[in-house]
């Protein structure tokens, strides 16, 4: 792996490729990550999108992309990427497309597709060693339909389908682990509030070939119930509390790219979001809070035992 060109924050792009004017919510953590990703990937890209919030990035006749886009359906964006990649390869191989007209194929989906409905298509694409970059903007629920519980919803969160006193009873699925178990080319978690970490990972991913996942936590003012202004702070807390570990998988190894010591108690992250308010009032749900903290601690005990 060559040296990064992103050594300090001032190395980050100052002009941005993704256009404004999209229908995404004010304060969208997913869009924040996406525009940073796009700056690094560049415009020789074709985004293959699945049903989700970002389907509304391209609404006739408006698109924020300087490159290309194809909307497929919720379950099969990786298969769409397969068709586009194969077709581009065929065209290049048969001399019908100059190599400099080739494109990086990027799948863009939310967590509903990435963790759930589209997982079969993702699994198939990895089996076939498809050369594609998968970007998941993870706002931990079916955000585009009003934040119902998804396979990425964290334990205890209120969603439109989990409104009881203990919130969502399930636990967030380990999509990173599922990908890693398949030994793909690259897997990384990113968040828009850590732009340097994000840029280095996209830079790395863009140079590799094969299946690659960028899993971006997307703090969601609408679905998580916080003031848009708080989006950056919540993103930072996600990292500082250790509830969203920043890491990457490459060449058979998982490396954590930001390790906070000591970690802020996870309660601070939870308290900042409306979706967890029922854990604090009318009465404090210490049992649930302890359970959430215990899972975070257990994670870091495994990966960073000396602290």
């Amino acid at each position: 792996m060559s040296e990064t060109i992103y050594r300090r924050m001032s190395d980050l792009p100052s002009t941005h490729l993704l256009g404004g004017g999209t229908a995404m919510c004010a304060g969208c953590g997913g869009l924040q990550a996406l525009h940073q990703i796009y700056d690094v990937l560049g415009t020789k890209t074709v985004f293959v999108n699945a049903a989700g919030c970002m389907t509304l990035l391209s609404v006739y006749p408006f698109t924020p992309f300087r490159g290309s886009w194809l909307y497929t359906a919720m379950a099969s964006a990786p298969a769409g990427a397969q068709g586009v990649r194969d077709a581009l390869d065929i065209l290049c191989d048969k001399g019908r497309l100059p190599r400099d007209e080739d494109l990086q194929v990027v799948t863009l989906t939310g967590d509903g597709a990435a963790y759930g409905m589209g997982l079969s298509a993702t699994s198939g694409a990895i089996d076939r060693n498809l050369d594609f970059l998968y970007i998941c903007y993870d706002n931990e629920g079916y955000g585009n339909t009003g934040q119902q519980s998804s396979p990425a919803t964290p334990h205890g969160a209120h969603t439109a389908t989990a409104t009881g006193p203990a919130g969502h009873s399930g636990f967030k699925k380990d999509l990173f682990g599922i990908w890693v178990a398949n030994r793909p080319a690259y897997v990384a978690t990113v968040i828009g509030t850590e732009p340097l970490d994000l840029a280095r990972k996209i830079e790395k991913a863009a140079k590799l070939s094969g299946p690659r996942l960028i899993l971006a936590l997307a703090p969601c003012p609408t679905g998580w119930d916080f003031d848009p202004q708080q989006a950056a702070e919540i993103g930072r807390l996600a990292v500082r509390t250790g509830i969203f570990p920043l890491k990457e998988y490459l060449d058979g190894r998982v490396v954590h790219t930001k390790v906070k010591r000591p970690r802020t108690p996870v309660e601070e992250y939870l308290r900042a979001q409306g979706r967890f308010q029922h854990l604090f009032e009318p009465e404090r749900r210490q049992d649930v809070l302890d359970a959430i903290q215990a899972r975070v601690d257990a994670y870091w005990e495994h990966w960073d035992p000396s602290h």
Partner: peptide, 19 residues
């Protein structure tokens, strides 16, 4: 592919790419 749903997606996507 791993299903007909994906198969049709790939078919359409490749056709949309120009083959």
């Amino acid at each position: 592919l791993e299903s007909e749903h994906s198969m049709l997606t790939a078919a359409g996507a490749a056709a949309a790419t120009g083959v």
